[in-house]
Nucleic acid binder design. Structure first.
Length: 579
RNA sequence: GCUGGGUUCGUAUAACGGUUAGUACUCAAGAUUCUCAAUCUUGCAAUAUGAGUUCGAUUCUCGUACCCAGUACCA
Protein backbone atom coordinates (compact mmCIF):
# COMPACT_ATOMS: atom_id res chain seq x y z
CA UNK A 1 0.00 0.00 0.00
CA UNK A 2 1.20 3.50 -0.84
CA UNK A 3 2.20 5.42 2.22
CA UNK A 4 1.23 9.04 2.62
CA UNK A 5 4.15 11.20 1.55
CA UNK A 6 5.89 12.73 4.53
CA UNK A 7 9.12 14.69 4.24
CA UNK A 8 10.99 16.77 6.73
CA UNK A 9 13.41 19.64 6.91
CA UNK A 10 15.66 19.07 9.88
CA UNK A 11 18.06 21.95 10.46
CA UNK A 12 20.44 22.31 13.31
CA UNK A 13 20.10 25.60 15.23
CA UNK A 14 23.78 26.47 15.10
CA UNK A 15 23.34 29.78 13.32
CA UNK A 16 21.31 31.44 10.61
CA UNK A 17 20.03 29.31 7.77
CA UNK A 18 21.84 30.14 4.57
CA UNK A 19 20.28 30.08 1.14
CA UNK A 20 21.42 26.51 0.50
CA UNK A 21 19.41 25.44 3.51
CA UNK A 22 16.43 27.45 2.35
CA UNK A 23 16.58 25.67 -0.99
CA UNK A 24 16.65 22.28 0.72
CA UNK A 25 13.58 23.28 2.72
CA UNK A 26 11.93 24.56 -0.45
CA UNK A 27 12.50 21.35 -2.40
CA UNK A 28 11.14 19.33 0.52
CA UNK A 29 8.09 21.56 0.64
CA UNK A 30 7.51 21.40 -3.11
CA UNK A 31 7.81 17.64 -3.11
CA UNK A 32 5.41 17.21 -0.20
CA UNK A 33 2.79 19.56 -1.62
CA UNK A 34 2.93 18.01 -5.05
CA UNK A 35 2.33 14.59 -3.59
CA UNK A 36 -0.41 15.90 -1.35
CA UNK A 37 1.66 14.93 1.67
CA UNK A 38 3.10 16.52 4.78
CA UNK A 39 6.05 18.81 5.26
CA UNK A 40 7.53 18.62 8.73
CA UNK A 41 10.06 20.80 10.49
CA UNK A 42 12.20 19.11 13.10
CA UNK A 43 15.02 20.76 15.02
CA UNK A 44 18.18 18.68 15.35
CA UNK A 45 19.82 20.20 18.39
CA UNK A 46 21.71 17.20 19.72
CA UNK A 47 24.91 19.20 19.95
CA UNK A 48 24.53 21.32 23.04
CA UNK A 49 27.91 22.98 22.50
CA UNK A 50 27.03 24.52 19.17
CA UNK A 51 23.59 25.78 20.09
CA UNK A 52 23.03 29.39 19.07
CA UNK A 53 20.39 31.51 20.71
CA UNK A 54 17.79 32.73 18.27
CA UNK A 55 18.79 30.42 15.45
CA UNK A 56 15.63 28.33 15.62
CA UNK A 57 13.41 31.39 15.49
CA UNK A 58 15.47 32.70 12.60
CA UNK A 59 14.93 29.47 10.67
CA UNK A 60 11.17 29.57 11.20
CA UNK A 61 10.96 33.27 10.35
CA UNK A 62 12.98 32.72 7.18
CA UNK A 63 10.77 29.92 5.94
CA UNK A 64 7.65 31.91 6.75
CA UNK A 65 8.98 34.86 4.78
CA UNK A 66 9.51 32.54 1.83
CA UNK A 67 6.00 31.19 2.10
CA UNK A 68 7.21 27.74 3.09
CA UNK A 69 4.70 26.63 5.67
CA UNK A 70 5.05 23.45 7.67
CA UNK A 71 2.12 21.11 8.16
CA UNK A 72 3.67 19.75 11.27
CA UNK A 73 6.65 20.61 13.44
CA UNK A 74 8.18 22.80 16.10
CA UNK A 75 6.21 25.90 15.35
CA UNK A 76 2.59 26.85 15.11
CA UNK A 77 1.87 30.54 14.58
CA UNK A 78 4.97 31.60 16.43
CA UNK A 79 4.42 29.27 19.35
CA UNK A 80 6.66 26.31 20.08
CA UNK A 81 4.79 23.04 19.87
CA UNK A 82 5.58 21.17 23.08
CA UNK A 83 3.00 18.42 23.29
CA UNK A 84 1.39 16.07 20.79
CA UNK A 85 -1.86 17.14 19.20
CA UNK A 86 -3.93 16.11 16.23
CA UNK A 87 -1.96 18.38 13.96
CA UNK A 88 1.39 17.63 15.59
CA UNK A 89 1.14 13.96 16.57
CA UNK A 90 4.88 13.49 17.02
CA UNK A 91 5.57 16.50 19.23
CA UNK A 92 7.90 17.61 20.56
CA UNK A 93 9.92 18.18 17.38
CA UNK A 94 13.10 19.35 19.04
CA UNK A 95 15.48 16.48 19.56
CA UNK A 96 16.73 17.97 22.82
CA UNK A 97 13.17 17.62 24.12
CA UNK A 98 12.98 14.07 22.82
CA UNK A 99 16.18 12.95 24.49
CA UNK A 100 14.41 10.32 26.57
CA UNK A 101 13.40 8.23 23.61
CA UNK A 102 16.75 7.52 21.96
CA UNK A 103 18.60 5.57 24.60
CA UNK A 104 16.50 2.46 24.29
CA UNK A 105 17.19 2.30 20.59
CA UNK A 106 20.90 2.53 21.24
CA UNK A 107 20.57 -0.22 23.84
CA UNK A 108 18.64 -2.32 21.37
CA UNK A 109 21.53 -2.13 18.91
CA UNK A 110 24.06 -3.08 21.59
CA UNK A 111 21.94 -6.01 22.69
CA UNK A 112 21.65 -7.24 19.13
CA UNK A 113 25.38 -6.91 18.56
CA UNK A 114 25.19 -4.03 16.10
CA UNK A 115 26.82 -1.58 18.48
CA UNK A 116 29.19 -1.54 21.43
CA UNK A 117 30.34 0.58 24.33
CA UNK A 118 33.54 2.56 23.82
CA UNK A 119 35.51 3.88 26.77
CA UNK A 120 38.20 5.84 25.02
CA UNK A 121 38.42 9.41 26.19
CA UNK A 122 38.56 12.20 23.63
CA UNK A 123 42.15 12.79 24.74
CA UNK A 124 43.11 9.20 24.07
CA UNK A 125 41.56 9.31 20.64
CA UNK A 126 43.22 12.60 19.92
CA UNK A 127 46.56 11.04 20.82
CA UNK A 128 45.96 7.98 18.69
CA UNK A 129 45.05 10.23 15.81
CA UNK A 130 48.12 12.41 16.18
CA UNK A 131 50.33 9.32 16.31
CA UNK A 132 49.02 7.89 13.09
CA UNK A 133 49.10 11.23 11.38
CA UNK A 134 52.83 11.56 11.90
CA UNK A 135 53.09 8.56 9.64
CA UNK A 136 51.00 10.37 7.07
CA UNK A 137 47.96 8.18 7.60
CA UNK A 138 44.48 8.87 8.88
CA UNK A 139 43.21 7.29 12.06
CA UNK A 140 39.90 5.55 11.62
CA UNK A 141 37.91 3.97 14.43
CA UNK A 142 36.92 0.83 12.56
CA UNK A 143 37.13 -2.95 12.54
CA UNK A 144 40.92 -2.74 12.34
CA UNK A 145 41.53 -0.36 15.23
CA UNK A 146 38.65 -1.17 17.55
CA UNK A 147 40.39 -4.36 18.62
CA UNK A 148 43.24 -2.31 20.05
CA UNK A 149 41.07 0.24 21.83
CA UNK A 150 39.15 0.10 25.08
CA UNK A 151 35.58 -0.95 24.45
CA UNK A 152 33.06 -3.63 25.26
CA UNK A 153 34.56 -5.84 22.58
CA UNK A 154 38.03 -5.84 24.12
CA UNK A 155 37.40 -5.80 27.89
CA UNK A 156 35.71 -8.42 30.02
CA UNK A 157 32.00 -8.36 30.73
CA UNK A 158 32.65 -7.53 34.37
CA UNK A 159 34.98 -4.67 33.65
CA UNK A 160 32.64 -3.38 31.02
CA UNK A 161 29.71 -3.26 33.43
CA UNK A 162 31.92 -1.57 35.98
CA UNK A 163 33.09 1.07 33.51
CA UNK A 164 29.55 1.78 32.40
CA UNK A 165 28.57 2.50 35.98
CA UNK A 166 31.66 4.37 37.05
CA UNK A 167 32.49 6.42 34.05
CA UNK A 168 30.33 9.14 32.59
CA UNK A 169 32.21 9.71 29.36
CA UNK A 170 31.63 6.55 27.37
CA UNK A 171 29.91 6.34 24.04
CA UNK A 172 28.01 3.77 22.06
CA UNK A 173 29.49 3.15 18.65
CA UNK A 174 28.08 1.41 15.62
CA UNK A 175 29.89 -1.82 14.84
CA UNK A 176 30.54 -1.41 11.15
CA UNK A 177 30.44 -4.82 9.48
CA UNK A 178 33.58 -6.04 7.73
CA UNK A 179 34.00 -6.19 3.98
CA UNK A 180 30.36 -5.79 3.08
CA UNK A 181 29.12 -3.95 0.04
CA UNK A 182 26.24 -1.63 0.87
CA UNK A 183 23.98 -1.15 -2.14
CA UNK A 184 22.04 2.08 -2.13
CA UNK A 185 19.72 3.98 -4.36
CA UNK A 186 19.45 7.73 -4.52
CA UNK A 187 16.51 9.42 -6.23
CA UNK A 188 18.85 11.91 -7.86
CA UNK A 189 22.12 10.01 -8.19
CA UNK A 190 20.95 6.53 -8.96
CA UNK A 191 22.64 3.38 -7.70
CA UNK A 192 25.64 3.72 -5.38
CA UNK A 193 27.77 1.00 -3.80
CA UNK A 194 30.22 1.37 -0.94
CA UNK A 195 32.36 -1.18 0.86
CA UNK A 196 32.04 -1.00 4.65
CA UNK A 197 35.81 -1.36 5.07
CA UNK A 198 36.14 2.28 4.09
CA UNK A 199 33.69 3.36 6.79
CA UNK A 200 34.21 3.94 10.49
CA UNK A 201 32.43 3.08 13.73
CA UNK A 202 30.39 6.21 14.23
CA UNK A 203 29.38 7.34 17.69
CA UNK A 204 25.63 6.93 18.16
CA UNK A 205 25.19 7.89 21.79
CA UNK A 206 27.09 10.24 24.07
CA UNK A 207 26.94 9.39 27.77
CA UNK A 208 28.36 12.75 28.87
CA UNK A 209 25.34 14.72 27.71
CA UNK A 210 22.85 11.86 27.53
CA UNK A 211 22.11 12.61 23.91
CA UNK A 212 22.29 10.69 20.68
CA UNK A 213 24.42 11.93 17.80
CA UNK A 214 22.87 13.05 14.57
CA UNK A 215 23.01 9.63 12.98
CA UNK A 216 20.99 7.84 15.63
CA UNK A 217 18.51 10.60 16.33
CA UNK A 218 17.94 11.18 12.65
CA UNK A 219 17.15 7.56 11.82
CA UNK A 220 15.00 7.04 14.90
CA UNK A 221 12.99 10.20 14.34
CA UNK A 222 12.57 9.66 10.62
CA UNK A 223 11.27 6.21 11.44
CA UNK A 224 8.94 7.33 14.23
CA UNK A 225 7.66 10.25 12.20
CA UNK A 226 6.99 7.95 9.26
CA UNK A 227 9.14 9.91 6.86
CA UNK A 228 8.87 8.54 3.33
CA UNK A 229 11.56 10.57 1.54
CA UNK A 230 14.68 12.14 2.95
CA UNK A 231 15.69 15.10 0.81
CA UNK A 232 18.88 16.67 2.10
CA UNK A 233 22.18 18.23 1.06
CA UNK A 234 24.92 16.31 -0.69
CA UNK A 235 27.18 16.63 2.34
CA UNK A 236 25.19 13.71 3.77
CA UNK A 237 25.90 11.32 0.94
CA UNK A 238 28.99 9.85 2.65
CA UNK A 239 26.90 8.85 5.67
CA UNK A 240 24.20 7.20 3.62
CA UNK A 241 25.72 3.69 3.98
CA UNK A 242 25.66 4.06 7.76
CA UNK A 243 22.05 5.14 7.64
CA UNK A 244 21.14 2.19 5.44
CA UNK A 245 22.86 -0.17 7.86
CA UNK A 246 21.09 1.41 10.81
CA UNK A 247 17.68 0.87 9.25
CA UNK A 248 18.70 -2.71 8.62
CA UNK A 249 19.98 -3.19 12.17
CA UNK A 250 16.72 -1.88 13.59
CA UNK A 251 14.73 -4.11 11.28
CA UNK A 252 13.04 -1.13 9.66
CA UNK A 253 14.02 -1.89 6.09
CA UNK A 254 10.43 -2.16 4.91
CA UNK A 255 9.61 1.40 5.85
CA UNK A 256 13.01 2.92 5.18
CA UNK A 257 12.58 6.26 3.45
CA UNK A 258 13.91 6.85 -0.02
CA UNK A 259 16.84 9.24 -0.22
CA UNK A 260 17.59 12.21 -2.44
CA UNK A 261 20.86 14.11 -2.06
CA UNK A 262 20.72 17.63 -3.41
CA UNK A 263 23.70 19.28 -5.11
CA UNK A 264 25.44 21.97 -3.11
CA UNK A 265 25.32 25.69 -3.73
CA UNK A 266 28.75 26.94 -4.70
CA UNK A 267 30.38 30.35 -4.49
CA UNK A 268 30.16 32.54 -7.61
CA UNK A 269 33.87 32.07 -8.25
CA UNK A 270 33.37 28.34 -8.10
CA UNK A 271 35.78 27.67 -5.26
CA UNK A 272 34.04 25.70 -2.57
CA UNK A 273 30.57 25.62 -1.21
CA UNK A 274 28.80 28.78 -0.32
CA UNK A 275 29.45 29.63 3.28
CA UNK A 276 28.29 32.14 5.79
CA UNK A 277 31.24 34.49 5.40
CA UNK A 278 31.01 34.77 1.63
CA UNK A 279 28.11 37.12 1.40
CA UNK A 280 29.67 40.24 2.73
CA UNK A 281 32.91 39.50 0.98
CA UNK A 282 31.30 39.00 -2.41
CA UNK A 283 28.75 41.75 -2.10
CA UNK A 284 25.48 39.86 -1.89
CA UNK A 285 23.54 38.28 0.95
CA UNK A 286 23.83 34.57 1.68
CA UNK A 287 21.01 34.70 4.20
CA UNK A 288 17.29 35.15 3.64
CA UNK A 289 16.99 37.54 6.59
CA UNK A 290 19.38 39.87 8.32
CA UNK A 291 21.32 38.19 11.10
CA UNK A 292 23.23 39.73 13.98
CA UNK A 293 25.52 37.33 15.80
CA UNK A 294 26.56 37.37 19.45
CA UNK A 295 29.53 39.57 18.61
CA UNK A 296 27.21 42.11 17.03
CA UNK A 297 28.40 41.38 13.49
CA UNK A 298 25.66 41.97 10.99
CA UNK A 299 25.04 39.79 7.96
CA UNK A 300 22.80 41.10 5.22
CA UNK A 301 19.58 39.38 4.28
CA UNK A 302 17.59 39.23 1.07
CA UNK A 303 14.54 40.63 2.80
CA UNK A 304 16.40 43.67 4.10
CA UNK A 305 18.14 44.14 0.76
CA UNK A 306 14.74 44.67 -0.79
CA UNK A 307 14.05 41.36 -2.48
CA UNK A 308 10.50 40.14 -2.86
CA UNK A 309 10.14 36.70 -1.29
CA UNK A 310 8.52 35.42 -4.51
CA UNK A 311 11.55 36.49 -6.52
CA UNK A 312 13.94 35.00 -3.99
CA UNK A 313 12.11 31.68 -3.94
CA UNK A 314 11.82 31.58 -7.73
CA UNK A 315 15.53 32.27 -8.14
CA UNK A 316 16.47 29.66 -5.58
CA UNK A 317 14.23 27.01 -7.10
CA UNK A 318 15.95 27.37 -10.47
CA UNK A 319 19.37 26.71 -8.97
CA UNK A 320 19.78 23.00 -9.50
CA UNK A 321 16.40 22.27 -10.98
CA UNK A 322 14.54 23.20 -14.18
CA UNK A 323 11.17 22.28 -15.62
CA UNK A 324 12.68 20.85 -18.80
CA UNK A 325 11.62 23.77 -20.98
CA UNK A 326 12.39 27.47 -21.22
CA UNK A 327 10.04 28.66 -18.52
CA UNK A 328 11.75 30.42 -15.66
CA UNK A 329 9.07 32.47 -13.94
CA UNK A 330 7.21 30.44 -11.34
CA UNK A 331 5.08 31.25 -8.36
CA UNK A 332 5.53 28.87 -5.48
CA UNK A 333 2.25 27.14 -6.39
CA UNK A 334 3.39 26.73 -9.97
CA UNK A 335 6.61 25.25 -8.65
CA UNK A 336 4.60 22.73 -6.66
CA UNK A 337 3.01 21.56 -9.90
CA UNK A 338 6.15 21.54 -12.00
CA UNK A 339 8.69 20.21 -9.53
CA UNK A 340 10.22 16.77 -9.74
CA UNK A 341 13.25 15.25 -8.09
CA UNK A 342 14.08 13.54 -11.39
CA UNK A 343 14.92 16.92 -12.87
CA UNK A 344 17.18 17.99 -10.02
CA UNK A 345 20.75 18.16 -11.25
CA UNK A 346 23.66 16.24 -9.84
CA UNK A 347 26.27 18.94 -10.13
CA UNK A 348 26.66 21.82 -7.68
CA UNK A 349 25.36 25.18 -8.81
CA UNK A 350 27.21 28.44 -8.60
CA UNK A 351 25.14 31.18 -7.14
CA UNK A 352 24.63 34.12 -9.49
CA UNK A 353 23.78 37.47 -7.83
CA UNK A 354 23.02 39.16 -11.17
CA UNK A 355 20.28 36.68 -11.90
CA UNK A 356 18.82 37.19 -8.45
CA UNK A 357 18.58 40.91 -9.15
CA UNK A 358 17.02 40.24 -12.54
CA UNK A 359 14.35 38.09 -10.93
CA UNK A 360 13.50 40.85 -8.52
CA UNK A 361 13.17 43.33 -11.36
CA UNK A 362 10.79 41.01 -13.18
CA UNK A 363 8.65 40.57 -10.08
CA UNK A 364 8.69 44.28 -9.40
CA UNK A 365 7.20 44.89 -12.82
CA UNK A 366 4.44 42.40 -12.21
CA UNK A 367 3.35 44.18 -9.04
CA UNK A 368 0.53 46.69 -9.23
CA UNK A 369 1.26 50.38 -8.78
CA UNK A 370 -0.88 50.28 -5.68
CA UNK A 371 1.13 47.51 -4.09
CA UNK A 372 4.42 49.21 -4.88
CA UNK A 373 3.10 52.51 -3.58
CA UNK A 374 2.29 50.92 -0.24
CA UNK A 375 5.87 49.76 -0.04
CA UNK A 376 7.30 53.10 -1.17
CA UNK A 377 5.32 55.37 1.16
CA UNK A 378 7.21 54.31 4.32
CA UNK A 379 10.49 55.07 2.56
CA UNK A 380 9.27 58.55 1.68
CA UNK A 381 8.18 59.06 5.25
CA UNK A 382 11.59 58.03 6.45
CA UNK A 383 12.97 60.82 4.32
CA UNK A 384 10.81 63.26 6.21
CA UNK A 385 7.97 63.64 3.74
CA UNK A 386 4.33 63.56 4.66
CA UNK A 387 2.09 61.35 2.59
CA UNK A 388 -1.63 62.02 2.85
CA UNK A 389 -4.69 60.25 1.51
CA UNK A 390 -6.15 63.34 -0.14
CA UNK A 391 -5.38 66.98 -0.76
CA UNK A 392 -7.56 68.06 2.14
CA UNK A 393 -5.96 65.66 4.58
CA UNK A 394 -2.78 67.68 5.04
CA UNK A 395 -2.07 68.45 8.65
CA UNK A 396 0.10 71.48 8.07
CA UNK A 397 -1.72 74.78 8.24
CA UNK A 398 -1.67 76.75 5.06
CA UNK A 399 -0.37 73.92 2.93
CA UNK A 400 -1.23 74.20 -0.69
CA UNK A 401 -1.36 70.93 -2.50
CA UNK A 402 -1.24 71.32 -6.25
CA UNK A 403 -3.68 69.68 -8.63
CA UNK A 404 -1.03 67.04 -9.17
CA UNK A 405 -1.05 66.30 -5.45
CA UNK A 406 2.20 67.89 -4.31
CA UNK A 407 3.16 70.60 -1.86
CA UNK A 408 6.90 71.06 -2.27
CA UNK A 409 7.11 73.86 0.28
CA UNK A 410 5.74 71.76 3.12
CA UNK A 411 6.85 68.40 1.73
CA UNK A 412 3.36 66.96 1.57
CA UNK A 413 2.18 64.60 -1.16
CA UNK A 414 -0.96 62.67 -1.79
CA UNK A 415 -0.94 58.90 -2.19
CA UNK A 416 -2.28 59.47 -5.68
CA UNK A 417 0.77 61.54 -6.56
CA UNK A 418 3.08 58.86 -5.20
CA UNK A 419 1.26 56.18 -7.16
CA UNK A 420 1.65 58.12 -10.38
CA UNK A 421 5.36 58.54 -9.68
CA UNK A 422 5.64 54.82 -9.03
CA UNK A 423 3.91 54.03 -12.28
CA UNK A 424 6.36 56.26 -14.12
CA UNK A 425 9.61 55.05 -12.57
CA UNK A 426 9.02 51.41 -11.73
CA UNK A 427 10.44 50.17 -14.99
CA UNK A 428 13.73 51.85 -14.16
CA UNK A 429 14.12 50.05 -10.83
CA UNK A 430 15.27 46.67 -9.61
CA UNK A 431 14.01 47.25 -6.07
CA UNK A 432 11.40 49.42 -4.38
CA UNK A 433 14.19 51.06 -2.42
CA UNK A 434 15.62 52.31 -5.75
CA UNK A 435 12.57 54.50 -6.32
CA UNK A 436 13.83 57.33 -4.17
CA UNK A 437 17.26 57.44 -5.80
CA UNK A 438 15.79 57.37 -9.27
CA UNK A 439 13.79 60.57 -8.95
CA UNK A 440 14.18 62.41 -5.63
CA UNK A 441 13.46 65.61 -7.52
CA UNK A 442 9.84 64.61 -7.87
CA UNK A 443 9.60 65.13 -4.11
CA UNK A 444 12.18 67.75 -3.20
CA UNK A 445 13.75 70.69 -5.01
CA UNK A 446 17.41 70.52 -5.94
CA UNK A 447 18.09 73.41 -3.56
CA UNK A 448 17.12 71.08 -0.73
CA UNK A 449 19.16 68.10 -1.90
CA UNK A 450 21.92 68.63 0.66
CA UNK A 451 19.42 68.89 3.51
CA UNK A 452 17.85 65.59 2.42
CA UNK A 453 21.15 63.86 1.83
CA UNK A 454 20.62 63.50 -1.90
CA UNK A 455 23.67 63.43 -4.11
CA UNK A 456 23.35 65.63 -7.14
CA UNK A 457 23.78 64.01 -10.51
CA UNK A 458 21.89 60.80 -10.78
CA UNK A 459 24.32 59.01 -13.03
CA UNK A 460 24.02 55.40 -13.81
CA UNK A 461 26.48 53.15 -12.02
CA UNK A 462 28.44 52.75 -15.19
CA UNK A 463 28.95 56.40 -16.03
CA UNK A 464 29.63 57.26 -12.43
CA UNK A 465 33.10 55.81 -12.62
CA UNK A 466 35.81 58.45 -12.30
CA UNK A 467 34.44 61.53 -13.95
CA UNK A 468 36.68 64.54 -13.62
CA UNK A 469 34.95 67.68 -12.48
CA UNK A 470 35.22 70.55 -14.86
CA UNK A 471 35.12 73.82 -12.93
CA UNK A 472 33.17 75.51 -15.68
CA UNK A 473 30.31 73.15 -14.98
CA UNK A 474 29.62 74.55 -11.57
CA UNK A 475 26.05 75.54 -11.57
CA UNK A 476 25.39 74.76 -7.94
CA UNK A 477 27.54 75.16 -4.89
CA UNK A 478 30.26 72.59 -4.37
CA UNK A 479 28.21 70.07 -2.47
CA UNK A 480 25.75 69.84 -5.30
CA UNK A 481 28.10 69.89 -8.22
CA UNK A 482 27.77 66.83 -10.32
CA UNK A 483 30.96 65.63 -11.94
CA UNK A 484 31.00 66.41 -15.63
CA UNK A 485 33.23 65.46 -18.46
CA UNK A 486 34.91 68.42 -20.10
CA UNK A 487 33.53 67.49 -23.49
CA UNK A 488 30.02 67.48 -22.06
CA UNK A 489 30.57 70.91 -20.57
CA UNK A 490 31.35 72.29 -23.99
CA UNK A 491 28.44 70.45 -25.47
CA UNK A 492 25.71 71.19 -22.94
CA UNK A 493 26.50 73.15 -19.83
CA UNK A 494 27.20 76.55 -21.30
CA UNK A 495 25.58 79.67 -19.96
CA UNK A 496 24.05 80.44 -23.34
CA UNK A 497 22.21 77.15 -23.25
CA UNK A 498 20.87 77.91 -19.81
CA UNK A 499 19.64 81.28 -21.10
CA UNK A 500 17.57 79.42 -23.65
CA UNK A 501 16.33 77.06 -20.98
CA UNK A 502 15.09 80.03 -18.97
CA UNK A 503 13.16 81.21 -21.98
CA UNK A 504 11.70 77.77 -22.40
CA UNK A 505 10.67 77.91 -18.77
CA UNK A 506 8.89 81.18 -19.47
CA UNK A 507 6.98 79.32 -22.13
CA UNK A 508 6.05 76.69 -19.58
CA UNK A 509 4.74 79.36 -17.24
CA UNK A 510 2.54 80.86 -19.94
CA UNK A 511 1.39 77.51 -21.26
CA UNK A 512 -2.35 77.16 -20.90
CA UNK A 513 -3.03 74.15 -23.04
CA UNK A 514 -3.63 70.57 -22.08
CA UNK A 515 -1.18 69.78 -19.27
CA UNK A 516 -1.05 66.06 -19.92
CA UNK A 517 2.41 64.73 -20.65
CA UNK A 518 1.87 64.00 -24.34
CA UNK A 519 0.18 67.29 -25.19
CA UNK A 520 2.61 69.39 -23.20
CA UNK A 521 5.62 67.55 -24.56
CA UNK A 522 4.78 68.21 -28.17
CA UNK A 523 3.91 71.84 -27.40
CA UNK A 524 7.23 72.43 -25.65
CA UNK A 525 9.25 70.73 -28.37
CA UNK A 526 7.42 72.62 -31.04
CA UNK A 527 8.13 75.89 -29.27
CA UNK A 528 11.84 75.17 -28.95
CA UNK A 529 12.14 73.99 -32.52
CA UNK A 530 10.19 76.93 -33.89
CA UNK A 531 12.81 79.21 -32.33
CA UNK A 532 15.52 77.06 -33.91
CA UNK A 533 17.12 76.38 -30.56
CA UNK A 534 19.16 73.24 -30.07
CA UNK A 535 16.56 70.91 -28.53
CA UNK A 536 18.98 68.56 -26.75
CA UNK A 537 20.99 71.33 -25.16
CA UNK A 538 17.98 73.27 -23.96
CA UNK A 539 16.33 70.16 -22.60
CA UNK A 540 19.44 69.10 -20.77
CA UNK A 541 19.88 72.48 -19.16
CA UNK A 542 16.25 72.36 -18.12
CA UNK A 543 16.82 68.97 -16.59
CA UNK A 544 19.82 70.23 -14.69
CA UNK A 545 17.74 73.05 -13.29
CA UNK A 546 14.63 71.01 -12.51
CA UNK A 547 16.18 67.73 -11.46
CA UNK A 548 19.65 68.72 -10.34
CA UNK A 549 21.02 65.99 -12.53
CA UNK A 550 22.35 65.56 -16.02
CA UNK A 551 20.28 62.47 -16.61
CA UNK A 552 16.91 61.20 -15.62
CA UNK A 553 13.28 61.40 -16.58
CA UNK A 554 11.95 63.25 -19.61
CA UNK A 555 11.42 66.98 -19.19
CA UNK A 556 7.72 66.73 -19.95
CA UNK A 557 7.32 64.13 -17.24
CA UNK A 558 9.13 66.21 -14.67
CA UNK A 559 7.22 69.39 -15.53
CA UNK A 560 3.80 67.80 -15.50
CA UNK A 561 4.55 66.19 -12.16
CA UNK A 562 6.02 69.11 -10.25
CA UNK A 563 3.80 71.75 -11.81
CA UNK A 564 4.39 75.20 -13.26
CA UNK A 565 4.91 76.94 -9.96
CA UNK A 566 7.69 74.61 -8.90
CA UNK A 567 9.26 74.86 -12.34
CA UNK A 568 9.45 78.62 -11.98
CA UNK A 569 10.90 78.33 -8.50
CA UNK A 570 13.63 75.90 -9.52
CA UNK A 571 14.53 78.03 -12.53
CA UNK A 572 14.94 81.09 -10.34
CA UNK A 573 17.16 79.12 -8.02
CA UNK A 574 19.59 78.02 -10.66
CA UNK A 575 19.76 81.46 -12.19
CA UNK A 576 21.50 82.71 -9.09
CA UNK A 577 23.88 79.81 -9.10
CA UNK A 578 25.31 80.14 -12.58
CA UNK A 579 28.88 81.37 -12.81
C1' G B 1 46.02 10.61 1.42
C1' C B 2 41.55 7.61 1.41
C1' U B 3 36.19 7.06 0.13
C1' G B 4 32.14 8.96 -2.47
C1' G B 5 30.02 12.53 -5.84
C1' G B 6 30.55 15.78 -9.98
C1' U B 7 32.30 18.21 -15.04
C1' U B 8 27.84 21.71 -21.81
C1' C B 9 29.24 29.32 -23.43
C1' G B 10 31.82 33.70 -17.75
C1' U B 11 27.05 31.99 -14.82
C1' A B 12 22.30 29.05 -14.59
C1' U B 13 20.72 25.41 -17.83
C1' A B 14 18.29 22.53 -22.61
C1' A B 15 19.21 18.68 -26.10
C1' C B 16 14.78 9.42 -27.24
C1' G B 17 22.71 7.80 -29.38
C1' G B 18 21.52 11.48 -35.23
C1' U B 19 20.24 19.50 -33.78
C1' U B 20 23.48 24.55 -37.45
C1' A B 21 24.56 22.22 -29.75
C1' G B 22 18.89 25.82 -27.92
C1' U B 23 17.35 29.38 -23.81
C1' A B 24 18.04 32.96 -19.76
C1' C B 25 21.50 36.23 -16.97
C1' U B 26 25.94 39.04 -17.73
C1' C B 27 28.83 41.62 -21.46
C1' A B 28 29.35 44.29 -26.42
C1' A B 29 27.24 46.78 -30.70
C1' G B 30 23.10 49.01 -33.18
C1' A B 31 18.01 51.08 -33.22
C1' U B 32 15.00 54.55 -30.38
C1' U B 33 15.15 59.13 -27.26
C1' C B 34 16.01 65.85 -25.01
C1' U B 35 19.76 62.84 -21.28
C1' C B 36 19.83 58.35 -18.46
C1' A B 37 17.32 54.11 -17.93
C1' A B 38 13.73 50.90 -20.01
C1' U B 39 12.56 48.56 -24.64
C1' C B 40 13.72 46.18 -29.40
C1' U B 41 17.47 43.96 -32.78
C1' U B 42 22.11 41.81 -33.47
C1' G B 43 26.51 39.79 -31.64
C1' C B 44 30.48 37.33 -28.47
C1' A B 45 30.75 32.74 -26.11
C1' A B 46 30.48 25.84 -24.34
C1' U B 47 30.22 19.72 -24.67
C1' A B 48 37.51 19.20 -19.48
C1' U B 49 40.82 15.35 -21.73
C1' G B 50 42.50 10.49 -23.91
C1' A B 51 40.83 5.84 -25.45
C1' G B 52 36.80 2.31 -26.38
C1' U B 53 31.66 0.70 -28.03
C1' U B 54 28.78 2.41 -32.45
C1' C B 55 27.32 3.72 -39.25
C1' G B 56 27.11 7.85 -35.77
C1' A B 57 28.79 9.87 -28.82
C1' U B 58 27.33 16.05 -25.27
C1' U B 59 24.64 11.46 -24.30
C1' C B 60 27.11 4.64 -23.02
C1' U B 61 32.11 2.25 -20.84
C1' C B 62 37.13 2.86 -18.99
C1' G B 63 41.49 5.91 -17.88
C1' U B 64 43.44 10.98 -16.81
C1' A B 65 42.83 16.00 -15.13
C1' C B 66 40.24 19.30 -12.33
C1' C B 67 36.27 20.66 -8.75
C1' C B 68 33.21 19.38 -4.44
C1' A B 69 31.89 16.65 -0.09
C1' G B 70 33.03 13.33 3.85
C1' U B 71 36.97 11.48 6.65
C1' A B 72 34.58 14.59 14.79
C1' C B 73 31.75 12.23 21.46
C1' C B 74 29.25 18.65 14.47
C1' A B 75 25.12 18.50 12.13
Amino acid sequence: MERRTRVRFAPSPTGPLHIGGVRTALYNYLYAKQKGGDFIIRIEDTDSHRFVEGAEKYIIDSLNWCGIKADEGVDENGKVVETPSERHPHAPYRQSQRKGIYKKYADQLVAAGYAYYAFDTPEELEKARAEVETKGETFIYNQLTRKTLRNSLTVSKEECDKLILERTDWTIRFKMPEDTVVKMDDLIRGHIEVNTDTLDDKVLWKRNDELPTYHLANIVDDHLMEITEVIRGEEWLPSLPLHYLLYKAFGWEDTMPRFAHLPLLLKPDGKGKLSKRDGDKLGFPVFPLKWVNAQGEVSRGYREDGYFPEAFVNMLAMLGWNPGDDREMFTIDELVDAFSLERVLKAGARFNPDKAKWYNKEYLRMKSDKELTDLFVPILEQHGLQIVECAKCALVAGSEISVQGADFTNHIFTVGYVEKVVSLIKERADFVKDFWDIAPYLFISPDEFAAFGVKAGAFSEKSQAARPVDPRAKVYDDSLTAPFLAKDVDKFWKKENYELAFKAADFVRSYTGDFSKEAFESALEEYIKSNEWPLGKVMNCMRMALAGASSGLGIADIVTFIGKKEVAKRMEFIKGKLI
